[in-house]
Write a protein that binds this DNA or RNA. Structure first.
Length: 242
DNA sequence: TCATTAAGTGCTT
DNA sequence: AAGCACTTAATGA
C-alpha cells in the first residue's frame, strides 16, 4: 500500500497556483516522515521551536490558544493537504497549539530542505505565500464570525466553510463528510458555551439544515445553510475563475 | 458525550 | 423598560 503523502497538498496548491512538473517534482522529492496520531494529541505546543513542518495527509487538526484560566479558543481547523504550522518555517517560536481533532496521518517535513526548495524555486515560494495569505483571509472571516454573527449563523458558517474547503479538493461525496468534532470543540470554535452551542445546533437541526453526530456532519439543505450563515465564498479564494 | 432546565446577566431597542 | 441572546450551574440519560 503506497500512499503519496504530497498528493493532497499538490491538489490544493493547483487550485490557486500553476505548478510546473518540475516544481511538483521538487516538492515530491522533499524528505517526509509519516506518522499516525490519535485524536486529542498535541502536535506542537506554544513556545515550541519546531525543526519540521507538519503536512496533513489524512484527518483533521485544530489550531488553538488558551485564554485566561484555561478556556480555549479554536482558531482554525485544517484538513488533508494543509500545513497548519507552515509559519514555523520563518517564525521560529510557536505562539499557539496544534492538536489532532481525530485520528490523523501526518507527514513531517524538515525545515532545512523545505527552506532550500523555497529559495531555489520562486514558484514554490509564491504558491506557499499565496497559501499563507488565504490562511489569513480565513482568520479575518473567523473574526467577523465570532465577533458579529449570532451563534446559529456562526455554527452554520463553520460547517459551510469546512464543507466548501473539503469539496474543493474532492474530499466529500454528496453532502455528508466525516468531521470528528464534539459539541465542546464546536463551542470552542464559535466562542459560545456548550449549552448554547447545543441549543443552536438543535435550531439548525429542527430547520432541516443539517445533522451533526458521531463525528460526521450531514448537510440537508446547503442553500438554506449558506443563507443562515451569511456565507460568501470569496474569502476562501478557491475559485480559479477569479 | 449530549441534552435539558432554572435562574440570572447584560446588551439592544 | 422589555425582550433577547447568552451564561453558569446543576442534573440526568
Amino acid at each position: 500500500m503506497t500512499i503519496d503523502p504530497f498528493a493532497p497538498l499538490l491538489k490544493r496548491l493547483r487550485l490557486t497556483s500553476d505548478l510546473s512538473p518540475e516544481v511538483e517534482q521538487s516538492i515530491r522529492r522533499l524528505p517526509i516522515t509519516i506518522r499516525r496520531m490519535e485524536g486529542g494529541q498535541t502536535i506542537v505546543a506554544t513556545g515550541d521551536r519546531p525543526a519540521v513542518c507538519c503536512l496533513i495527509v489524512d484527518g483533521f487538526v485544530q489550531r488553538s490558544k488558551i485564554v485566561g484560566e484555561g478556556s480555549r479558543q479554536i482558531l482554525a481547523f485544517h484538513q488533508p493537504g494543509d500545513i497548519p504550522d507552515l509559519q514555523s518555517l520563518y517564525l521560529h517560536v510557536l505562539d499557539h497549539e496544534v492538536t489532532t481533532l481525530g485520528d490523523c496521518t501526518l507527514g513531517f517535513v524538515p525545515h532545512d530542505p523545505l527552506r532550500a526548495v523555497v529559495r531555489n524555486n520562486p514558484d514554490v515560494a509564491e504558491a506557499l505565500w499565496r497559501d499563507t495569505l488565504i490562511d489569513a483571509a480565513l482568520f479575518r472571516e473567523w473574526i467577523c464570525n465570532v465577533g458579529r454573527r449570532e451563534a446559529a449563523s456562526r455554527l452554520a458558517h463553520l460547517v459551510v466553510e469546512v464543507y466548501e474547503r473539503l469539496a474543493a479538493v474532492g474530499r466529500v461525496t454528496g453532502l455528508s463528510f466525516k468531521f470528528p468534532a464534539t459539541q465542546v470543540v464546536l463551542a470552542e470554535a464559535i466562542g459560545t458555551s456548550t449549552v448554547h452551542l447545543n441549543r443552536v445546533l438543535q435550531e439548525l437541526r429542527t430547520k432541516g439544515l443539517l445533522e451533526i453526530e458521531r463525528g460526521a456532519i450531514t448537510i440537508f439543505d446547503l442553500e438554506g445553510l449558506r443563507h443562515a450563515a451569511d456565507f460568501d465564498p470569496l474569502y476562501l479564494h478557491l475559485d480559479p475563475a477569479l
